[in-house]
Simulated scan of single mutants.
Amino acid sequence: MRCPSCGSLDTQVKDSRPTEDSSAIRRRRLCPVCGFRFTTFERVQLRELTVVKRNGRRVPFDRDKLARSVEIALRKRNVDPERVEEAISRIVRELESLGESEVTAETIGETVMDHLRELDDVAYVRFASVYKNFREAKDFETALAELAGEDDEDGPAKPG
């Protein structure tokens, strides 16, 4: 593993342990050249995924980009970071288990929205507003009405 500080290829693992949900191995590393300490995560990857964008372009799937999008939607929301990491891992596993090496951006967006809906209603609406390209207040009203309709079917509204 290359040192992010000096670029040396000779780094040492000082500690390894599974994450809370055992979906990854957290490794503390030390660079013997410059003394820099850093953390890496090792995850199981079922298959290499390629994202087919709306314009037809194909790009490699990037878990970190997915995580950033989810974190942006959840910004300033009181959601336990462990729950967020578990949701991201579930999204990735769900996409990998579709059985295809190519997955559409639409499939990813819909999957993320399904999981955000379970985590936090406000984050769901934020993500949907970007993903579905809301252009006017009515678009927000429609999304909120969908959420309210689901709460009515499931019983009392979930606390946010």
Rank of each mutant, 00 (worst) to 15 (best):
E94W: 05
D121L: 13
P156A: 10
V51C: 00
G7M: 06
A67L: 13
R28N: 09
V44N: 09
L9N: 13
E150S: 08
V33S: 15
D120Y: 03
V44E: 13
I88Q: 01
D64P: 05
R28C: 04
N133I: 14
D114C: 00
L116N: 01
V70D: 06
N133T: 14
S5I: 06
E146T: 11
K158V: 12
T40H: 01
R68P: 03
Q12V: 15
D151T: 01
V125L: 11
S16W: 06
V13S: 10
V51F: 00
R77Q: 13
K158P: 03
R93G: 05
S16I: 06
S22L: 10
G99N: 05
A137H: 11
K14I: 14
R47F: 09
D21A: 03
E48P: 05
K76F: 01
A24E: 04
V112Q: 02
E48S: 13
A73L: 05
A128C: 02
R93P: 02
E141P: 09
G155A: 02
G35T: 00
E82P: 02
R77V: 03
Y124R: 09
R126H: 09
K132Y: 10
N55C: 07
D154S: 14
Y124M: 12
D139E: 11
S16L: 10
S22A: 12
E141A: 11
V125D: 07
P18D: 04
E85P: 03
A123Y: 08
I108R: 01
D152S: 15
C6A: 08
L46H: 14
I91C: 01
V103N: 01
V103R: 00
G56R: 12
D80P: 03
R75H: 13
F134N: 06
K65E: 12
V52M: 14
L30W: 03
E94D: 10
D21N: 12
F140T: 06
